[in-house]
Nucleic acid binder design. Structure first.
Length: 796
RNA sequence: GCCGAGAUGGCGGAAUGGCAGACGCACAGGGCUUAAAACCCUGAGAUGGCCUAAAAACCUUCGUGUGGGUUCGAGUCCCACUCUCGGCACCA
């Protein structure tokens, strides 16, 4: 055999073509065969193309899925494109191209880049969210949500990005800025479609416990959902029939309430209700409320900012526990969109109320002992009528009952603002009719396709560019057959990605979202891999839609993604984020051309723990390329007879690599294979059977080279359809081992002992060692700790 | 402020309570070579000592963010801190 370097270019080309030709990675439902559905978060095909950070997760799922296949699972490992939405559209605007043309070009680029890495995707299942046959079902889900009362029209002010010229959901914000472009958002009142994700808040929270997900992702979702347990209490307004309902998590402090605060959005402050309560300075109050309500939450001031507010002159509220009257304020530190839009203020035991009371000179009354004011801890109640002297936590429920309130649970999660005033998205399938109101497009008329337009630039007026196309907008009402106008807003970027994992199970099905047969076989996704930045966006939306689809019997599982791994970033060599802006982007094409796809794959898996952010290192990839070459050269050392001394290392490698892949600990799997190759080189020869087993273990990581070496061994078919080797437990346990001898916990020598040597034998052997005898001196061991095969410690 | 994850050589990192630093990078010395690259071999946590012309070898002590504790034995378990990264944040 020639002493050639590994000709990676030819080998990659040869096997990539052969896998394609033989449909090596085609997946199908096979009755009775165990399945594994392994999924990457599918990419937005941006114009930038892939940099070396993108494939890290794809390599991991590739290794994982190849291992699963070799273990006898039917594997589904698909790929597709999330091509609607702002990134694609903004790219198209910038490059003066139609979004569709840009998307097609970008997909071609992405696909060719991915192809070079030798992934085992079943490309026959490729999907694209902008394909009408796909978004047919995105629209179908919307109609079902509408049918079930979970989609509704709202005129509430929403967050508006003046740069992207569209409304945004809460999840699309980064603080007070548009998550996409960083522009601060404004409040804007627009007719909007909103999805009632809040109806699912509790289930989204509780079912997190059933998921095998990283703790930080689950915690991010718990924070986002923000469940609070407390109580709702009514404060009657003196001299009227009105009352102010407040939500509080601290009903135990009810006896310390010295005023009540309404949010600027509170209904009692609106002009329409002005006669309900006797606000003497209504004009002033109303003006303050209108101004404050028009500001975004961030503009209204974060924690620490000086509080503002106006007293409602002539209005007093009655504390339901003490029957005392307290003044009422409007202040922008109270949010209209949370709780009841009104709070009871307890300045002695709440920092915000304390700051407000100090500024406005309001009274402060302590009802819990301990600490300086404001005291937010727990303690013994005082000045709390019959509850005085009791622990505040113990009597919380009793105080609620005493005050005639009721227990209540509130969430921070907001409903999903679902309309976008942009062109490049799924049209929302409803028709507005003067006579019938809002009418859903009949299911049989789906999909409502996106029309071709001259100008798809956003108008900025709050109208979608679609509104300018009269021929498309003007239609007939499905109900009364009179004139109707189409909804011109489109769906957000997250719509198509909220259910795509279902489409992969049954792509191209025009008759249903997914067939029951396919869904029953493949669901749920067994392993889902992607970036942690989706924790409170995509991952929460997809869970919401999935639970809804479960409720209407489209899917059979409560959760879409049973297990999740979040991929750590690959930083540039300079430690910064890889970005065109910094000029530090590394293109995988260049790396593959120089070092080969297998070395690239191995390197990204070897860099460090999968979830860690790690800087790219060109010299380190040279190391894995060296490893590839050493394996390649090992083919010259293959002998007919197995080398007994390699057996232990081999079987350890089979065991560890398999377990590490399963646990997503690829870095230690790679290092174990290096350990084995080191041992084989030292041995000078490797038996043919041992070589076969080792190639199989390496195959998920280095699919091209291993298939080539497999063929050179004279094997038929692809190594990737061979079965994973079994390890022999008997070979793992060494018959004898070097046992460390310690005296008082300090290493003094070692003794080679049989694995089953008795303590007496071990002690005798230990005593024979000079250094041990010296350390012992005349002393007799008071105690001997013996762990067979590991250690013997003599305590004197 | 609340919540989560983490801190180990020059670097990435490894280690079911049992020889800390596997594996790799970078580095140093040597081999091969006319030379270089490639490749191969060897070395290396720190400090002090011993022997030395110098080194190797050998020995001592220290050593996994800090301070305590449990244990025959702690990177690993417990308590209290410091710092870094991430999520939430005027959510009552």
């Amino acid at each position: 055999m020639a002493k050639e370097a590994f000709p990676h270019k030819e080998v990659e080309k040869k096997w990539q073509e052969r896998w394609m030709r033989d449909e090596t990675y085609r997946s199908q439902e096979v009755e009775g065969k165990p399945k594994k559905y392994v999924l990457d978060m599918f990419p937005y095909p941006s114009g930038e193309g892939l940099h070396v950070g993108h494939p890290k997760g794809y390599i991991a799922t590739d290794v994982f899925s190849r291992h699963a296949r070799m273990q006898g699972h039917e594997v589904l490992h698909p790929m597709g494109w999330d091509a609607f939405g702002l990134p694609a559209e903004n790219y198209a605007l910038k490059h003066k191209a139609h979004p569709r043309a840009a998307v097609e070009k970008n997909i071609a680029t992405f696909k060719s880049q991915l192809a070079r890495l030798g992934f085992d995707y079943d490309w026959s299942r490729e999907i694209n969210t902008t394909d009408p046959a796909y978004y047919h079902w995105t629209q179908w889900i919307f109609l079902k949500l509408l049918e079930q009362g979970l989609a509704f029209e709202s005129e509430e002010p929403i967050n508006w990005c003046p740069s992207c010229k569209t409304g945004l959901a809460n999840e699309d914000l980064d603080g007070n800025a548009c998550e996409r472009c960083g522009t601060p958002v404004e409040k804007k009142r627009l007719p909007q479609w909103v999805l009632k994700i809040t109806e699912y808040a509790d289930r989204l929270l509780v079912d997190l416990d059933t998921l095998n997900w990283p703790e930080h992702i689950k915690e991010a979702q718990r924070n986002w959902i923000g469940r609070s347990e407390g109580a709702e209490l009514d404060f009657a307004i003196t001299g009227t029939d009105e009352k102010i309902a407040v939500f509080t998590t601290r009903p135990d402090t009810l006896f310390g309430v010295t005023y009540v605060v309404l949010a600027p959005e509170h209904p009692l402050l609106q002009s329409a209700y002005r006669n309900l309560i006797p606000i003497k300075n209504f004009k002033e109050v109303h003006a303050y409320a209108v101004t404050a309500a028009g500001k975004t939450e961030i503009e209204r001031g974060a924690e620490g900012k000086e509080k503002t507010g106006v007293k409602l002159e002539g209005v007093m509220a009655v504390n339901p526990a003490t029957k005392e009257e307290v003044p009422v304020f409007v202040a922008d530190y109270v949010l209209g969109s949370y709780g009841t839009g009104a709070v009871m203020a307890v300045p002695a035991h709440d920092e915000r109320d304390y700051a407000f009371a100090k500024k406005f000179g309001l009274s402060i009354s302590r009802v819990i002992e301990g600490g300086n004011l404001p005291f937010t801890g727990d303690g013994v109640l005082v000045d709390s009528s019959e509850f005085s002297g009791k622990g505040n936590r113990e009597v919380m429920g009793d105080i609620v009952a005493y005050a005639g309130g009721k227990k209540a649970v509130r969430y921070k999660l907001r409903d999903w603002v679902f309309s976008r005033q942009r062109y490049w998205g799924e049209p929302i399938p409803v028709i507005h009719c003067e006579k019938c109101g809002t009418v859903p497009v009949p299911y049989e008329d789906l999909p409502v396709t996106l029309p071709e337009v001259e100008s798809y630039e956003p108008t900025g007026t709050g109208e979608s560019p679609l509104a300018a196309i009269d021929s498309w907008v003007n239609t007939t009402c499905p109900k009364c057959k009179g004139p109707g106008k189409r909804e011109t807003n489109t769906m957000p970027q997250w719509a198509g990605s909220s259910w795509y994992y279902l489409r992969f199970m049954d792509p191209g099905n025009d008759g249903a979202l997914v067939s029951t047969k396919a869904e029953k076989y493949w669901a749920p996704v067994d392993m889902y891999v992607g970036g942690a930045e989706h924790a409170t966006r995509h991952l929460i939306y997809a869970r919401f839609w999935h639970k809804f689809l479960y409720d209407i019997s489209v899917v059979s599982t409560l959760e879409p993604f049973a297990r999740l791994a979040s991929v750590g970033l690959i930083l540039a060599e300079d430690g910064r984020k890889m970005s065109k802006r910094f000029g530090n982007v590394i293109n995988p094409d260049d790396v593959v051309a120089e070092y080969g796809a297998d070395a690239f794959r191995l390197y990204e898996m070897f860099m460090g723990p999968f979830e860690n952010a790690t800087a790219w290192s060109t010299s380190s990839i040279a190391g894995t390329a060296r490893f590839i070459e050493r394996v390649w050269r090992l083919q010259e050392k293959v002998a007919d007879e197995s080398r007994a001394r390699l057996d232990k290392a081999l079987h350890e490698t089979i065991k560890k690599v398999g377990e590490d892949i399963e646990a997503f600990k690829f870095n230690t799997a790679v290092s174990q294979m290096m350990v084995f190759v080191n041992a084989a080189e030292k041995e000078g020869e490797i038996g043919k059977e041992q070589w076969r087993s080792f190639l199989k273990v390496l195959a998920p990581f280095a699919p091209h080279m291993t298939d080539e070496l497999w063929e050179r061994l004279g094997e038929d078919g692809s190594i990737h359809q061979a079965s994973w080797p079994a390890y022999e437990p008997a070979l793992l346990a060494a018959s004898e081992a070097a046992v460390v001898v310690q005296v008082n916990g300090k290493r003094r020598g070692e003794a080679v002992l049989a694995a089953d040597a008795s303590e007496a034998d071990a002690l005798a052997a230990a005593r024979k060692i000079d250094t041990v005898a010296t350390a012992l001196g005349d002393a007799e061991p008071k105690r001997v700790v013996y762990v067979p095969g590991k250690i013997i410690n003599l305590v004197v």
